[in-house]
Amino acid sequence: MSEIQEESKHVQHIQPYSAQSGTMVPLGMQKFLRTCVLWQIIRFIAINIRMTILILKSHNQS
């Protein structure tokens, strides 16, 4: 399968001029990273740090 055909599988369900055609759609690398356990462990730590900061800011209202 050529590279163009490989990438088109991520968008082939979209109908031209439909509402779905007006937005961004993730390709293979983006989808891979979403389920790549090593990368997601890093993101898990990052999300938790981010949420902790959010909680601290919210509790310390001044």
Binding site: L33, R34, T35, V37, W39, Q40, I41, R43, F44, A46, I47, N48, R50, M51, I53, L54, K57
Partner: peptide, 14 residues
């Protein structure tokens, strides 16, 4: 910097 959005397995774990 405090408003974020991301998609992935990590959010499942959260």
């Amino acid at each position: 910097n405090g408003t974020t959005g991301e998609i992935g397995l990590a959010a499942h774990w959260v």
